[in-house]
Design a protein around this nucleic acid. Structure first.
Lengths: 344, 344
DNA sequence: ATGAAAGCGCTAACAA
DNA sequence: TTGTTAGCGCTTTCAT
């Protein structure tokens, strides 16, 4: 192992291995047409010299760059970290770099910002996380500009191009079923941010579960939220102020569920004695509040890992098989922290 | 605004502006010796063509690259996001890219990992966040390798090289004073992770405050923590099980304070009626738990911003003024969410 | 104050 | 299967 200055170049490797630089190039790019023993010799020298191809030189001479960008619109820190970890993992494994690009879904300059990113950083592809996975205008521009992308948890799954999603609808369905089994009849729901697909499906899962169990859908028990703690606080206040208030509340994510818990405490309502609260995402927060929330573990990191792999694949295969929309699904797990049903 | 493919090059700019490429180069590098009107003409063409210098070409031809790395060892998500936002801000402003490098402080291969990063990504400099800001072995290697660095909140401020810190000691001192003014006499403390400087100073602030107010230091009230929720849970259990238990607990960060709150609820201890809990960092969590924590706002983002600027400065000034250790301080603010003193 | 030429380390197209 | 050559877009050094 040796340090930073005076990097080893392909020429030194070629000379020491007694081959031309082109042969070294073939080896590091896993091309065919290199005899096994030649290849081995070159690899040995590479290891000995701790040689790494210079990414800038490769980019300059080659067809594509080794940066990809992760676009995100300010979700919760823990969601974002999971997203990044997953994307980083794949990037690292494939020799790519990850560029972080915060951006506003409703920002007037969204497309200009991204264009800027593309022109400046020469990224051959982007990863779109919710809600940007459904920024239709942006996606059209990307296609027009010839920039690849992979989407995480999009609403519009019909659109061509790779995406990775989870069965939010099914998980919400099971979660509500779980609450009903515990004896709940009046179950309130706080819907997610309307920009996010996840919100829609979790709501649909709720509706289906209620219907299948023959329970009435009471409009008073359905409140719009925006995935933030504050919106959970407000929606919770609304639900818990009802004369015939719910015995359980399902918030479409943990942050809002934490808001419900907070306001319940403020209002002197005993949890879990008089109220059950369920969230979604299995964030650290869901375990840190008291009492801990029942929630659903969402494999965000895994989704990001897979979306990134798909994107890198496309970048490498450019021009070859324009392999239509390819979808991946990851599975969800309910985590019930109470175990016991509340006293009704 | 136009798209990705077929990038504009310096040649096209030069031709359209009626100058040589060297003049364009001078303009984009803010070099002297360009007549004002020439410069203006070139800038106009650059804007018109939406030209951006190709980073890879610059790196290949120039003296240094435009990537810098942020090293972190798995702090809390919100801390990490703040760190990143600050670093990104400076990078963006200065035309650099940020490379994320998670790493383990106690990892046997830490130095090898970083060497790898340096060889592979050609980073001219690194930002070290706690506890890596005090990885003495690593820092020595960096100097040996000729790789620059800037540290965030280090313990050892004597070491040469730029760093950014806050007055943790003073803030803890004030916070404890605040609790004492509210009438608390038995104040427990949960110390921070021993690897982190912040933990030491917050503890010192506690000791100084207690002494200055003539209160005894009771060893039973001092418990080691590790900055995690779980360690707060355990330390809280220990403190609250004392026969003469404290009326206030100061945890060296919010995650641990949330643990204390959680265990207090579990034990049926009324907060804030029978116990006050204070944390440190002003994370979202501190507002989401119930009741909200008294805490100290730490300008993590601002620290990262400044450390990054310092690093970029050094990279640009390489070889010139080897300008010794330069320190920066950011200030802290107490946020008291209760306002009222608990009933003692 | 401006320009011409060389070359950074690599890949691509074409030879051999 | 292997090597040769020409550039990618820029900065550098050295002229003018």
């Amino acid at each position: 192992m040796q340090g930073g200055s005076g990097s080893v170049t392909i020429h030194e490797v070629a000379e020491k291995a007694g081959v031309s630089i082109k042969t070294v190039s073939r080896v590091i790019n896993h091309e065919a047409n290199v005899r096994a023993d030649t290849k081995e010799r070159v690899l040995a020298v590479i290891a000995e010299l701790n040689y790494r191809p210079n990414p800038s030189a490769r980019h300059l001479a080659g067809t594509h760059g080794y940066n990809i960008a992760l676009l995100y619109d300010n979700p919760s820190p823990s969601y974002l970290i999971d997203l990044q970890s997953g994307a980083l993992e794949s990037c690292h494994a494939e020799g790519f770099h990850l560029i972080l690009q915060p951006c506003g879904f409703h920002d007037q300059n969204l497309e200009a910002t991204i264009n800027n990113l593309i022109v400046e950083s020469r990224v051959p592809g982007l990863i779109l996380s919710p809600p940007l996975s459904d920024a239709a205008g942006l996606i059209e521009k990307l296609e027009q500009w010839g920039v690849l992308h992979a989407r995480i948890a999009p609403i519009d799954v019909a659109r061509p191009g790779p995406y990775v999603a989870v069965d939010d609808r099914g998980a919400a369905f099971e979660l509500i079923g779980h609450l009903i089994e515990q004896g709940h009849r009046r179950i309130g729901i706080i819907k997610g941010h309307p920009d996010h697909g996840a919100g829609h499906w979790r709501y649909e899962g709720y509706l289906t579960a209620m219907r299948q169990h023959g329970l009435p859908i009471d409009e008073d028990l359905i409140v719009q939220g925006y995935f933030s703690f504050e919106s959970g606080l407000e929606a919770g206040r609304k639900l818990l102020s009802l004369s015939d208030r719910p015995t359980a509340i399902f918030a479409a994510n943990d942050d809002m569920a934490a808001g419900v818990l907070h306001i319940a405490h403020d209002m002197g309502i005993d949890v879990p004695g008089q109220l059950s609260v369920a969230g979604f995402d299995d964030t650290p927060l869901s375990r840190h509040v008291w009492p801990s929330l029942t929630t659903v573990r969402q494999p965000v990191q895994e989704m990001a890992r897979q979306a990134t792999m798909q994107l890198i694949d496309r970048i490498r295969k450019r021009g070859l098989s324009e392999s239509g929309p390819s979808a991946m699904y990851c599975s969800l797990v309910i985590r019930d922290s109470t175990g016991a049903a509340p006293n009704l």
